[in-house]
Amino acid sequence: MFTGQYDVKTINFGRETEKADLREFLAGEDLSLDGDIDYAVCLFEGDRIIASGCAASNVLKCIAVAAPYQGQQLTNRIMSLLRIRAYHEGFPGLFLFTKDINEAVFRDLGFFPLARAPGVILMEDKEEGWRRYLEELNIPEGERGTSAALVMNCNPFTLGHRYLVEMACRENDRVHLFLVKENLSVFPYDVRLKLVREGTADLDNLSIHEGRDYIISHATFPTYFIKEKKVINESHARIDLDIFSRLIAPELGIVRRYVGEEPYCPVTSLYNRIMEEMLPGRGIEVVTIPRKEAAGGAVSATKVRKALAEEDWDTLEGWVPPTTLRFLQSEDGRRIGNLIRKHQEESE
């Protein structure tokens, strides 16, 4: 590949000095090196970075060219490198986060706008890729029409989740539950899905769907998965809710979204606040349900994970449905408990 008079180099994230140089360059461009970035390629003049492109698996971001070097199509060069790398990694599709003023630049490079928030835009390498996602959900005609929606991670499924789902199912003819697909939680997606299915088997107006890229994913809402940093990025929440309210909800006839009150986690509570601000104007009512109280206060998945680490079965019995309890007590469940305990010890 022609690289002109500048050197191309990928950043070695194991070396603090290289990372610090990139962080400094991005800061000058009003960008920050998010914790989920796992690849970065830069153009150097001597030992100085003059252009960069980063990726968090299949999400491209932090693409910048220093002002004095613009006008040499260096963005094209960076994008070629990112695209080839994505090809070698075998990603089926790409997303791209950028400032809204750059929309035209990336349209010329094969990306289409997907969602917007003030100042930023999320683009995708195919036009209306979300339509394909909805088609693949394969929702029967009988399950379409006026409905309510819930988006949950269920890490793992608790009586609190059960309470929220039950409430939605009682008050609506049809309820769509989108389960967050990302496998960044301690309970793997397959296990979370199994526990939700088992714990809601008696609710026949409930449809359970895979959340995937367009619903709280590392593409639409990266901050959700780098929670421990306590970085609160309002734009990400707005992007995610823009997709939900403008593209997904109208297709499925969703007019209500149920959400559990969130007094603890700052990221989720900010998300809920923005939901209440954005959705009603777009024809979706937000129904906030207070947490279910049980012995020992409100039920939360965080507390369940902690109790599992301590193998406190008596407490767990009051917080999770029997179906979840059975799994937690199985060999696989105990293994997850050990994992949580190890994490806790490490972070202490």
């Binding site: 022609f2 199509q73 094209n76 994008m79 070629s80 080839i84 090809y87 075998g90």
Partner: peptide, 16 residues
């Protein structure tokens, strides 16, 4: 399977 070659440089083409 998917195949890719080329680049987005001026006077080049990126083919998938």
């Amino acid at each position: 399977k998917t195949g890719m070659a080329g680049s987005l440089e001026s006077s080049d083409v990126l083919i998938t």
